[in-house]
Computed example of a mutant assay.
Amino acid sequence: RGPFPGIIDIYGVGGGLLEYRASLLAGHGFAVMAVAYYDFEDLPKVPNTLEMEYFEEAVCYLLQHPQVKGPDIGLLGLSLGADICLSMASFLKNISATVSINGSAFCANRPIHYKQTTIPALGYDLRRTKTTFSGILDILDVRNDIVGGCENPSMIPIEKAKGPLLFIVGQDDHNWRSDLYAQVASERLQTHGKEKPQIISYPGTGHYIEPPYFPVCLASLHTLVNKAVIWGGEVRAHSKAQIDAWKQILSFFGKHLGDTQNPRL
């Protein structure tokens, strides 16, 4: 009957509203809200800036829902969605557990804005794009260098996050260097007197770590270049990672958001 622990679920570049992961999470005793932030109904076709006030409204809406058990909620994001979740955890209240799936902890291609604070975009150079033997693009090296490491001005101030952070990392991610970024995030937290975050790193695993038994996405259209790009990963290793990562995510939220009424894995 509820109420249930609340989670906001956010996907990355591509836009629209994806609800299948939220639906699967809900089957494990969570009240889950999938949030679209561009290219859906009356939302902008392409956002120029990521406004945290928009996501703050989502947090407030979820916490006011009678089926949601407060006082805090959790966040789950993939890729750009993971960076949005890390920004929400850093700037907003009432967030006690955040999972980043192959996020970067940097402001990627668009500035992040909240009240009087703006985080500048790290930026990229498409001239560093490579072409694989199959003719598909590899964009691993297009992002600008993280000069200054964990103190780069484009890094999200994750040391302000209230609750624990879990980084799920694919070691063969070809969207960006998720394994490096997770280590830089850990360095930033420790530099600011925080504990090391939990980092679970999977060899042979690419960018799109989906729920268990979903087909492995090795390549697809990327809106940044409007062409197919490789995401990395080897089918067997990536598939096994998706099974284990799901268990880790459910365990993390179960621990930090409170026991659910249907805690099966």
Rank of each mutant, 00 (worst) to 15 (best):
C217H: 04
Q67M: 15
K247N: 15
Y202P: 05
D9R: 05
F167E: 01
I95C: 04
V216C: 09
R264G: 04
H238I: 02
V46A: 12
A219E: 15
L78K: 04
G6P: 02
V225C: 13
R236E: 15
P157M: 03
Y37L: 08
I95M: 08
Y208V: 07
E151N: 06
Y181I: 00
Q248R: 14
C107Y: 02
L63V: 01
P211G: 07
A97T: 03
L122H: 04
F167N: 02
S23F: 12
R127V: 01
C150Y: 13
G81Q: 09
G16Y: 11
P211W: 13
K93Q: 15
N109G: 10
P211K: 11
Q198N: 12
P153N: 02
V142I: 15
G6I: 07
R128E: 08
T131N: 00
P153S: 08
S201N: 11
Y11M: 05
P66Q: 09
T117F: 05
M155V: 01
L18C: 10
L50R: 13
Y38R: 07
I112D: 04
F4E: 14
N109R: 12
A36T: 07
G12V: 13
Q116N: 14
N144W: 08
L265S: 10
P120G: 03
K240V: 11
W231Q: 03
Y202H: 01
A185P: 01
H174N: 12
Y208S: 12
A182H: 06
I8H: 10
P157C: 02
I199S: 03
M155D: 00
V169G: 07
H222R: 10
C150R: 02
Q248K: 14
P212H: 08
I209D: 03
